[in-house]
């Protein structure tokens, strides 16, 4: 069963995807995110755009208009230096959270 985007996780997904792929337009981002999530994520692709605007307002990404593979005008987003720093911080945060939760979620012996 695909899941909805957990609050606050979409930002990191977008940033990581941009870090991995370089400058990318909204459609490409959406495709890549869905591809990486291997069907686990149920993304309303439209919600990407308010998120992109928010990231841009925070100066983590910047955008410019360019020409896409099929020769159409499209808006391309790319990471800024601040965005890279943000990825590092957020990644650490998540790793900590995951490690922490893992300790609680270990099934004790005997429990089925």
């Amino acid at each position: 069963m695909p899941r909805e985007v957990l609050q606050g996780t979409l930002d990191l997904m977008v940033l990581r995807t941009l870090a991995a792929m370089g400058p990318q337009h909204g459609l490409g981002l959406a495709k890549r995110i869905l591809q990486v999530s291997e069907g686990l994520l149920d993304l309303n692709q439209g919600t990407l755009y308010p998120a992109l605007l928010r990231l841009e307002q925070r100066r983590w990404i910047k955008s410019r208009w360019g020409v896409s593979d099929n020769n159409r005008k499209a808006k391309f987003y790319e990471l800024t230096a601040r965005g890279r720093r943000q990825i590092r911080e957020e990644t650490e945060n998540w790793e900590l959270t995951v490690a922490l939760m893992a300790k609680f979620l270990v099934k004790p012996a005997g429990e089925s």
Partner: peptide, 12 residues
């Protein structure tokens, strides 16, 4: 936004 949404829809 409108341009981006149109591009996205067309792509899909």
């Amino acid at each position: 936004l409108e341009a981006q949404l149109a591009y996205h829809l067309d792509g899909l």
